[in-house]
Design a protein around this nucleic acid. Sequence first.
DNA 1: GATGAATGAGAGTTCATTCAT
DNA 2: TATGAATGAACTCTCATTCAT
Lengths: 208, 208, 208, 208
Amino acid sequence: MPDAARSRRLKPEQREAAILDAALEAFARHGFADARIEDIARVAQVSKGSVYLYFPTKQALFEALVRRDIGPRVAMARGFLDAYDGPLEIALQNLADMVSAIIDSGQTPIYPRLLVAESQRLPELVDFYRREVVGVLLAALSGLFARAMTKGEIAQDDPVMLAHLFVAPVLKALMWALVFTPTEPEPFRAGPYLAAHIRLFLKGLQHA
Amino acid sequence: MPDAARSRRLKPEQREAAILDAALEAFARHGFADARIEDIARVAQVSKGSVYLYFPTKQALFEALVRRDIGPRVAMARGFLDAYDGPLEIALQNLADMVSAIIDSGQTPIYPRLLVAESQRLPELVDFYRREVVGVLLAALSGLFARAMTKGEIAQDDPVMLAHLFVAPVLKALMWALVFTPTEPEPFRAGPYLAAHIRLFLKGLQHA
Amino acid sequence: MPDAARSRRLKPEQREAAILDAALEAFARHGFADARIEDIARVAQVSKGSVYLYFPTKQALFEALVRRDIGPRVAMARGFLDAYDGPLEIALQNLADMVSAIIDSGQTPIYPRLLVAESQRLPELVDFYRREVVGVLLAALSGLFARAMTKGEIAQDDPVMLAHLFVAPVLKALMWALVFTPTEPEPFRAGPYLAAHIRLFLKGLQHA
Amino acid sequence: MPDAARSRRLKPEQREAAILDAALEAFARHGFADARIEDIARVAQVSKGSVYLYFPTKQALFEALVRRDIGPRVAMARGFLDAYDGPLEIALQNLADMVSAIIDSGQTPIYPRLLVAESQRLPELVDFYRREVVGVLLAALSGLFARAMTKGEIAQDDPVMLAHLFVAPVLKALMWALVFTPTEPEPFRAGPYLAAHIRLFLKGLQHA
DNA sequence: GATGAATGAGAGTTCATTCAT
DNA sequence: TATGAATGAACTCTCATTCAT
């Protein structure tokens, strides 16, 4: 093999990462069923057969992708929430700002849509989400609300329910961006939407 | 032809409906790409070719299905909202009760999921939804909130934004039921969730 | 049935003729395999099922078409040749003029092409052609040449061979027109071509 | 994989050739529309999918087949004609002998029939024939006749017309063999037919 | 007789996966 | 380890033919 070719060749970890990156793009653009392994391989600068060296099936590739990208983000969010000890309003606004910035910059993560779209086909993926994503984040958010109650910032309520309710407009903003933005004349802006959400939500949580 | 066979044969109007019903089941279970025309035909008690007598392509079948089932429901909801003139709380609670009853009885409509899942493939379907479903329902809800403001029931605010915010937990409940219910040990109950939503939401809308 | 509809309806012989006319157009345009019975029925102003009332299969329709159109023309040509008693040159020139007029007016009969194209599929059609068309016409032409020899107009030769040779440029002109004319910038003219053929051919037949 | 199976597997260059060979057989026997890719694959000892590795569509396979087989033969004939400087009669007789030998040995090329049969469907193929086959061969033949006139072997005439006329019985012999031979009791012999043609043709070309 | 809805075998094509190199 | 040619099951869609009306 000529040196030029060898130097262009990636190390195994890099190859796996390149495949996952290419898979993300392909699944985002076409959905699971219509994404073609051959396209993923070409974008990853790898042969079709090599994809199968790293992932035994298309489905396994999909699941590995979700696991790689979701885990760290969830851990980061959880770390922030668990460590947070300031006023509730600031925490919620920070969360909303992060999400809004991502959405309004056009980089909306496609994982929620992929989960929704493929949940029938991939029950194990659903389990993973429930355990590793939804469960963790809702628990962390619940903790946040529970502490706010302890501190008397908000009225007594079911903290888990509050977490579910707080999260709903965030999810809606994500889905909206994923579904409607490509064809929408004037795109929906997540920032003002979530700001209004927090304003109303906190007012609803005030002591009576 | 024996009588048994003849009686098994459906009338034309029934045949189209049977195909659409079977298609709904197939698309719900497998998604667009993995639903097989042959299965749809068998469930509809119809030959494979007959499906193409009524719908020129698989995609047209899918779109016809959405149009058939969505239109009347949207019209009904819109009629209720436009005609309503009572207290806001009752209206919202009625809406939530209807949605909760559907979800908690296990008949969650799969159309929202299909929209999310196939939005990349079917931009025309997205347009249809925006115009005929989302646009109509949000307008009707906005009107409801606007009238409540005029009557002084709630504080002044952007009625369109309120409609978007009110709707978020409803959508979340739908998605939750579709994605997690099949594998969840103790299913999420939409009723209490939406009740809590309305309670907080209305409190947030009170005059300051 | 309303009178208007009944009067629009054709008599059986007319219906059969209309179907055959439509079939001619369809086979000429698309070939046997790609001609669709449904299109033929529509052009003939007849239902698809009615085609099968008159012809049991697509193949039978094709064969009936050939038989209807070929027979009379062959009989006419044969009658002319058998009855002819004038100079050979005039007879040949008359034949060439008829053929040239047809070709150069753009009405080239598609039967030779259909025979060539479908000869593998339809051996019975080939038999029919050999017996009813080629055999008859070559025999009549052979007779013409034989009489010319008897009268001393041309040198002694095998009259059957002469018939075969005389016919070759006629067939070539037909095929040429069918294959190349649709895309050819300056169309091949059969008239001058066959005139040159007769000139050379007769010169070749002169007494040494 | 057992040795037997491995040895049955062909090398890449052989595979493409085997597919083309099988396609030739299939198209010759059934025509374009009725030739089945699956049959071609089986005859070529190749999977159905492999055919699409080499040719993107059935039509492309057909066109590649024609191009592969026609080009070299045309080039050879043209080379012979362009280089020839002997007496006209010998050249014509050589050509006739070659054609006769092929036809009378039962290996009549099916390309002329395929051209005739599929000319409606494949206008590009017709263009290819006009440019690469008919145009080239008629030009080369015209040159032969023109040189014969210059040398005084034959009377002055239009050399292009002579080429067209000379070629007609050759084509007729080809078509005859293709259409009638399979079912004909005593097959038509091209040899004597073309010999008679040349005899008469040259006599027609003599100086007056 | 006439209709056209209904049938279903079969075609071309795709693509996840395998495997010889 | 890496390749990409090869595989073949599975899919959508077509259309000659049938048959209930």
